[in-house]
């Protein structure tokens, strides 16, 4: 927590602030009153500094947790892949194979083209997003307080509550969508799809283009923002319930009960959101592969 005795607002704000490393512009007055003579890269203290950094910043915590969780996925699955045999599988191999089979079946149901990228992509998204969402189930105070004790001012441990992370993945998917649309249909086919649908007449080209472009751009944004929104809201509810701890024994116990209930419900949400992200990715890519 930011101060010794933070107000509720401070407490919530602290939990919603990323550990930001970025460039403060020249002439900015920092919290301690010093005015910067030239721009400098530093860790932001407080959300106002983070805002002042604007685009020239990194969310160190989001990147670290996202990378770490992705690494866990890669190493775990790589370990299984290395020792994978067609003999009777061990427990870990069995577990991994269940996930692989689940993803593979979903991809087979939804994606009818031939593309060796789609299934591994879906697997990566599913497991990685699930792991990132899973961080939501760690009690909200544990890691930030621990990091505070270690001298790190902020720590948001759920990467999927950072729009940069979810939109980053959605943009990755969007790039693949455009790439395959052009690769399969050709530039002409892709342009035709944007201009001659839904009204197949030259007069309607501007209307079609407007509608199709909005539809096309809405896909990655809805994809990224849906995950972000769900996880952010879930995290927010955990934080709000946690505020009850400071309101006496009765509310504290009641809050604990609510935390448990919400966490159990949230297991569903995080799995579902990971699944939805995967399914929509596959569906969008499948649409890119469809030749009219």
């Amino acid at each position: 927590m930011a101060g010794e005795n933070p107000t509720t607002t401070e407490y919530i704000q602290h939990h919603l602030t990323n550990l930001t490393f970025g460039e403060l512009p020249a002439g900015y007055m920092r919290d301690d009153g010093t005015v910067l003579t030239e721009s400098m890269w530093t860790i932001a203290h407080g959300s106002s500094e983070a805002t002042a950094m604007g685009f020239n910043a990194f969310h160190v915590d989001s990147l670290a947790w996202s990378f770490g969780l992705g690494l866990i996925f890669c190493l775990l699955f790589r370990a299984v892949a290395k020792s994978a045999s067609s003999d009777v599988p061990g427990k870990l191999q069995n577990f991994v194979e269940i996930i692989v089979e689940f993803v593979d079946n979903n991809v087979k149901d939804m994606f009818h083209g031939r593309n060796p990228l789609v299934a591994p992509l879906a697997l990566t998204i599913f497991v990685w997003v699930f792991l990132m969402n899973l961080m939501d189930l760690i009690p909200v105070d544990v890691v930030p307080e621990l990091m505070m004790a270690l001298g790190v001012p902020y720590q948001k441990i759920v990467p999927s509550t950072d729009p940069n992370v979810t939109l980053g993945m959605a943009l990755g998917v969007f790039i693949l969508m455009i790439y395959y649309a052009i690769k399969i249909k050709g530039v002409g086919g892709f342009v035709k799809e944007l201009t001659l649908h839904p009204f197949n007449h030259p007069v309607f080209i501007p209307v079609n283009l407007f509608m199709e472009l909005v539809g096309l751009l809405a896909k990655p944004f809805s994809l990224g923002l849906r995950l972000f929104g769900n996880m952010y809201a879930g995290e927010m509810i955990f934080i709000l319930i946690a505020v009850m701890y400071s309101a006496g024994l009765f509310f504290g116990l009641f809050g604990g009960l609510l935390q448990v209930g919400w966490a159990i419900f949230h297991i569903l949400v995080i799995t579902l959101q990971a699944f939805i992200f995967m399914v929509l990715t596959v569906v969008y890519l499948s649409m890119s592969h469809e030749d009219h």
Partner: peptide, 22 residues
């Protein structure tokens, strides 16, 4: 919502992990 370089970092991680998985 602070959109910043994190976005590109995430895209790079995304590509790297997907390629590794593939």
């Amino acid at each position: 919502m602070n959109i910043n370089y994190t976005l590109f970092g995430q895209i790079i991680f995304f590509v790297a992990f997907v390629l590794f998985c593939m």
